[in-house]
Write a protein that binds this DNA or RNA. Structure first.
Length: 311
DNA sequence: AACGTGACGGTTGAT
DNA sequence: TTATCAACCGTCACG
């Protein structure tokens, strides 16, 4: 049986007969299984054979897990030690309270001169600037929430006027901060000038957003329905998914570009045809990792695992 | 045989 | 809209 024909969409088969999607991370369950097996003392080569995942991948995953403690796909910064430790952060906060208008370079100097940091672990100016910027954002958000809470409280009728405890307000603030993506924070602080030297430092690229499978699923569903959502649709979707409207716009733009570039299936057949694997793939039995949603017989090009599968 | 790693082709959010 | 960048993915092949 020509197995490659039964794998639609971007699914591919590796040398071990395992299914994978080029460019996509392995499902969370599989990643967890790898770690679990390693914990139980199973050798990487055996994990590789058992799960039909290349030993190179197993090796990299375990290596990353050892270094970062994280099994999640995503940036190397997931478990990267912070340059600004809580202690340094506390010191910076203290310096700023003592001297509200203090510049980043002055903070840096003080950290060094007061032996809070050595030359080796001294945070960069941009790190300090970013910290200050986020602190200011947090404060602004806090003020906004406080104002909002008070306004709402004032406009309310008397039957629920006792529901604004400090804890509740704080919880709201924390939630608002948590709901805000770093992107939104960047947007909101576009005009802020935490430091003058911020202007001298090359503007950092926006932190790449990480959407959940649920969000991606809903976006795909919406895209199938209408690839060109208007402002109202985008706003509605933004509220529903908790993603900033501008991100929704960018996502749809990229999604349309993706659709124009290469419809799924065409790409798969092309790569299969050109891949040196094409001769060897057929020898393998159906991979264990193959799940029903990965097989597709119809002309539809939507290739969606169940919600949460890739998380 | 087992393993670490660089090259590679691919995905996708941002610019 | 299109092209490109950048950071990440898993596979493959080499040492």
């Amino acid at each position: 049986m020509d197995f490659s024909l039964s794998v639609a969409g971007p699914g591919r088969v590796n040398q071990l007969g395992g299914l994978y999607i080029n460019g996509k991370p392995l499902p969370k369950g599989i990643r967890e299984e790898i770690i679990e097996l390693a914990r139980l003392g199973v050798r990487p080569c055996d994990i590789s054979r058992r799960l039909k995942i290349t030993h190179g991948c197993i090796s990299k995953l375990l290596s990353k897990y050892q270094k970062t403690g994280s099994i999640n796909p995503g940036g190397a910064n997931v478990g990267r030690p912070r340059v600004i430790t809580p202690r340094i952060e506390q010191k910076i906060e203290q310096y700023r309270q003592e001297q509200p208008g203090i510049f980043s370079w002055e903070l840096r100097d003080r950290l060094l001169h007061e032996n809070v940091c050595s030359r080796n672990n001294l945070p960069s100016l941009s790190s300090i600037s970013r910290l200050i910027k986020h602190k200011m954002m947090a404060r602004a958000a806090s003020n906004r929430q406080e104002y909002k809470t008070i306004s709402e409280g004032n406009s309310r009728t008397s039957n629920n006027n006792s529901s604004h405890s400090i804890d509740e307000i704080l919880n709201h603030q924390v939630k608002e901060q948590a709901d805000k993506s770093p992107d939104d924070q960047d947007d909101a602080t576009e005009g802020d000038s935490a430091d003058k030297e911020c202007l001298l430092i090359r503007r950092q690229r926006r932190q790449r957003a990480k959407y959940t499978s649920r969000q991606l699923h809903d976006l795909e569903v919406e895209f199938e329905r209408n690839p060109y959502p208007n402002a109202w649709d985008r706003e509605t979707l933004a509220n529903k998914l908790g993603i900033h409207e501008t991100r929704i716009q960018v996502w749809f733009s990229n999604r349309r570009a993706k659709g124009r570039r290469k419809p799924y299936g065409d790409e798969a057949s092309q790569t299969q045809a050109t891949s040196p694997l094409v001769c060897t793939c057929h020898r393998y039995s159906a991979p264990q990792l193959l799940t029903p949603w990965m097989i597709e017989s119809g002309p539809s090009r939507l290739f969606l695992p169940p919600s949460g599968y890739w998380e």
